[in-house]
């Protein structure tokens, strides 16, 4: 294709997105659009399945049958969401196996928050309340993103995720109504998960490399800093309701802006964790690689059996 023609196609393409038209898998798309979407959708999918691990830790120790089934169903949903997202990504011409390969070799990233350890039961509450809370803020706008399969996957994800945050908040609520020990446990979890949750919404706008292009393609509707502010504004009153203190001495309502002011985020820590030096990066990756490697013989067996069955069917037909 001549350069002129590509330029023309690109203009038409951008115009379609501007008119709120969806892009579908077989449509022509700029290579950069394809690559950016593979990166973002797979990163999202990886976050879902790595995100199963910190909570999966507590399925066997959940304190009641009701909590056990709720947590199990929630972690299972995350597997489902990973699956929807990998499928969306596959429509861009890359296989799930290739995407796993990228994850396992450290080439692909996932949300760095899942590299923090889950130390007590209250962490199940804090993750549901804060991490899922931040995730929802990120995800709801994506139901309208320009790439059709991604938008459709996100609609399903958002619909299913509506119980996740409630599940977490309910755990926190029960703890905050409970014994001193339980309240302390809840406060401790908030202390440990608050800052990583703020970081989860991404680097500050000044540092974020992808924002402008992502806005154009509707991979993002608001900047990281706007999303972070929205998260803080909606979460602070919830913490008040729980009788818990947000671990930020500089947090304060600002009459003029109509938002909460907050303290400085430790971005060094963020980048450390992103680069693989968080508390659990190695364990998380090992768990994923082990599951995949130990499952190889199972997957191979299923393929071999399917082939034999097909052969027998064909023989019978002759």
């Amino acid at each position: 294709m001549g350069e002129e023609k590509i330029k023309n196609l690109e203009e038409q393409f951008e115009a379609r997105i501007l008119r709120d038209e969806k892009i579908e898998p077989k449509d022509w798309m700029p290579e950069k659009y394809r690559k950016t979407h593979i990166r973002q959708i797979s990163q999202h999918a990886h976050s879902e399945i790595v995100g199963m691990l910190p909570e999966g830790n507590w399925i066997s120790r959940a304190p009641s049958l009701r909590r056990k089934v709720a947590l199990l169903a929630k972690v299972q949903d995350e597997a489902g969401h990973g699956l929807y997202l990998y499928s969306a990504c596959e429509t861009l011409g890359i296989s799930r196996e290739e995407l796993y390969e990228q994850l396992h070799t450290g080439k692909a990233k996932y949300s760095s928050i899942f590299n923090y350890p889950t130390l007590t039961w209250a962490d199940m509450g804090a993750i549901g309340w804060l991490v899922d809370g931040a995730a929802i803020i990120n995800q709801v706008p994506l139901c309208n993103t320009s790439y059709g399969p991604y938008a459709r996957a996100m609609i399903r994800v958002c619909k299913e995720e509506s119980f996740h945050q409630r599940q977490g908040f309910e755990i926190m609520l029960k703890l905050s109504e409970g014994s001193e020990e339980q309240k302390t446990m809840a406060q401790d979890a908030l202390n440990r998960w608050w800052w990583p949750s703020l970081m989860m919404l991404g680097p500050t706008d000044a540092e974020s490399v992808h924002t402008e292009q992502s806005m154009k393609w509707k991979l993002k509707r608001k900047t990281n800093d706007e999303l972070r502010q929205q998260f803080i504004d909606q979460t602070v009153p919830q913490a008040d309701l729980l009788g818990l203190t947000i671990p930020d001495p500089e947090l304060k309502w600002n009459e003029t802006t109509g938002h909460y002011d907050f303290g400085v985020i430790d971005w060094d820590e963020f980048w450390q964790v992103v680069k693989g030096h968080g508390p659990c990066n190695k364990e998380r990756m090992k768990a994923r690689v082990d599951a995949w490697d130990n499952g190889a013989w199972v997957r191979d067996a299923a393929v071999a059996y399917a082939e034999k069955k097909q052969e027998r069917k064909e023989k019978k037909a002759v």
Partner: peptide, 11 residues
């Protein structure tokens, strides 16, 4: 509804 991976039609 979406897609998935499976080795054969029953699965």
């Amino acid at each position: 509804f979406g897609s998935l991976h499976a080795a054969d039609e029953e699965m």
